[in-house]
């Protein structure tokens, strides 16, 4: 059993506990917030989960997540463009996204295999430049569903595209019920945990084991007859596809597609979440993904209302940012320390 609770988690838990106690003291209804935090867990959870394959293959945090996100956005745009709605719409969007993500992921992997050892920094800038490149694309994208086009210009994609009439909230609204004032959408949760389980299963197979071995010890893996570059490529594709599915889940829950520069900022929150979950930049478990995803989002959910009640909104907002950045830094320093001792 891996030790789950380490100083970073303790800091976060203490912060969360203080917030919760304050919330109770201020009579803020906690049950609704708990429901929200679950929705958020899933909304962002898949994106957090998408970091896992690359971490496990020793490629580091995928700061190039925008690559996967853009693939997802493209997939969803296609689905919307062909007026696919409801469950079928979401499924179509995911299918398109996954297919595009495989292509993008493959190219992205080619690049990352060239920058071994410095993937994180290279990926950061690959992500940034890819987003700018896609901005060029969005402004002239040849889609023709009028619901996606600029209202004044009449061509090119809108900044945000509403999904309500297509497949917005289909997962959220599946098997939704109330219990003790907590709104739980079972469909959404089931989907997430099913996906987690699927990832878990994949890591049980031969290729999954090879991925983990490459991440832990590339030389060993090579000596065991593994084609290291192939495994790394597969891991990157896997990450990219999950990233694409992640944005699909995110967008259907949020109800809008956000294009242009929106994907730029997707990677840092996901990376923060996974580090808060206790990953140290090496092999990461699904448990850490879920824990980190939940803690990170729970803080967002609770800190907002509490801060507003206390009438010092900016304070909480800045403190929250400070805490997250501190934890990421801590994880970087601490994670390295662990490896040195090994």
């Amino acid at each position: 059993m891996k030790k789950f609770i380490r100083p970073p988690q303790i800091i976060i838990l203490v912060f969360l506990a203080v917030l919760t106690i304050t919330a109770i003291y201020l009579h803020i209804p906690l049950n609704a917030m708990f429901g929200d935090s679950l929705v958020r867990l899933v909304m962002n959870g898949v994106l957090v989960l998408s970091l896992l394959p690359m971490l496990n293959a020793g490629i580091g945090l995928n700061f190039g997540l925008p690559v996967g996100v853009v693939a997802g956005l493209l997939g969803m745009c296609l689905a919307v463009n062909y007026h696919q709605t409801g469950w079928f719409g979401l499924a179509a969007a995911m299918l398109f996204s996954a297919m595009i993500a495989v292509v993008f992921g493959y190219l992205y992997a080619l690049l990352l295999n060239k920058v071994k050892g410095r993937e994180e920094i290279a990926a950061t800038f690959v992500g940034f430049s890819f987003v700018s490149l896609m901005c060029l694309f969005w402004s002239v994208a040849p889609f023709n569903n009028p619901a996606m086009l600029w209202p004044i210009g009449g061509k090119g994609m809108r900044l945000t595209v509403g999904l309500k009439d297509y497949f917005g909230k289909v997962l959220n609204n599946t098997w939704q019920f109330n219990i003790l004032g907590i709104k739980i959408s079972l469909g959404l949760l089931l989907f997430f945990f099913l996906l987690c389980f699927l990832v878990y299963l994949i890591y049980k197979t031969k290729i999954g084991r090879a991925m983990i071995a490459v991440g832990e010890n590339e030389d060993f893996a090579r000596l065991s007859g593994i084609n290291v570059n192939r495994v790394r490529t597969l891991s990157v594709i896997f990450s990219t596809v999950l990233g694409a599915l992640g944005i699909c889940v995110y967008a259907q829950s949020y109800g809008f597609l956000e294009l242009y520069t929106a994907p730029l900022m997707m990677a840092f929150p996901a990376a923060s979440a996974i580090l808060i979950g206790g990953s140290t930049g090496g092999k990461t478990t699904i448990g850490q993904v879920v824990l980190g995803g939940y803690l990170y989002q729970a803080i967002y959910v609770i800190s907002g209302p509490v801060a507003n009640q206390l009438l010092m909104p900016e304070f909480a907002e800045i403190i929250r940012m400070l805490a997250t950045n501190l934890i990421i830094l801590y994880a970087l320093l601490y994670g390295e320390g662990l490896r040195k001792n090994a």
Partner: peptide, 24 residues
């Protein structure tokens, strides 16, 4: 009623702000 949301300019972009609005 005056309510503060997560800051889109200094943090992780507008997404957290919009999520907050959806819940709040």
């Amino acid at each position: 009623v005056d309510i503060s949301t997560p800051d889109p300019f200094t943090g992780s972009g507008p997404s957290p702000m919009l999520q907050f609005l959806q819940e709040d």
